[in-house]
Nucleic acid binder design. Structure first.
Lengths: 166, 166
DNA sequence: TATTGTTATACTCTATAACTATA
DNA sequence: TATAGTTATAGAGTATAACAATA
């Protein structure tokens, strides 16, 4: 009597719990957004760094598809990230009209430090949880992570699904 | 031997798992962002709707503090949301220099539909999880949700913490 | 004088459309 | 002709600074 026979109430509960936490973080996370005093990169630029960290050497068009952004937007964003020294743009050896984009060592270390700061901030929250809840969070998020990746294959999700999420 | 004696590895694991899922959603969620074809409101405007849904009748300054945005930005955003018919701005009866901001019925129904669409999209993901993981996700997220609210009191979080999260 | 909200100005991000260079 | 990337232009979001109205 785990789920199938019960009509999927547990699925609905999980979807609702996820939606509520996402909303909460959407408001809270957005508070230090964009040109925040201490942040050298905007949230859009940060998304570029995340993608490049997981797909080194891709071209500008491909990066735009991962981000769901137009090539012109990505081009200008890369201008600024390059001026900041966070990314490198080298000409592709295969095709002279393509670029190969990647994180610079400075970009890599920035990302590493940001992740450490974020985990430190999150540690404040998870430390306020009971151990059993914390263990459940790890198990639940691991499964959710894999499930999201299987459902939303990179770079283009289900075409129209993503629009609902913004 | 639940946690205290083990040096907090489970806390670190939970913080890391949360940080990874947030990063994943940051890239994925952002794909349908801002002026997306079908979306009538941008992600910034959506944050306004979320706050007003939880704090009806607040003034512009207070809304700005919840969002972490400057009054001038909020003022213009409210112009556009009012033009769209999603919010109402009435003069405060207590103080003639203040506004009382709230969702219009159109804004409320928009939010309700958006939440339904989001949960439907999330249902695709949680349905791909095993029942035990799904149950763990619900328990873990419930505890996390409460913990985040206790650690980051509205409207102003720990002053400097938020900047790391953008 | 202090506070609330608006307007002026500037920079970033976003898009579409027009353009150059390469395949 | 089709594709990769850039540039031009316009609208939205962000900020700081100067301003009007109210307390």
């Amino acid at each position: 009597m785990d789920s199938e026979a019960s009509g999927g109430e547990d699925r609905d509960a999980a979807a609702r719990a996820a939606r509520e936490v996402i909303e909460l973080l959407e408001v809270l996370w957005g508070r230090g957004r964009d040109l925040a005093s201490t942040a050298p990169v905007s949230s859009s630029q940060l998304r570029v760094l995340f993608v490049l960290d997981g797909a080194r050497g891709i071209n500008l068009r491909m990066l735009g598809e991962y981000l769901g952004s137009a090539p012109s937007s990505v081009s200008r964003m890369c201008d600024r990230l390059h001026a900041l020294g966070f990314i490198e743009r080298s000409l592709s050896s295969a095709s002279r009209r393509e670029l190969e984009l990647s994180l610079s060592s400075r970009g890599e270390s920035y990302l590493k430090e940001l992740r450490a700061r974020r985990e430190s901030a999150l540690l404040d929250a998870v430390s306020a949880m009971r151990p059993a809840e914390r263990a459940a969070l790890v198990d639940g998020l691991s499964g959710f992570h894999l499930a999201v990746e299987s459902v939303a294959p990179s770079p283009r999700p289900a075409e129209g699904r993503a629009a609902d999420l913004a």
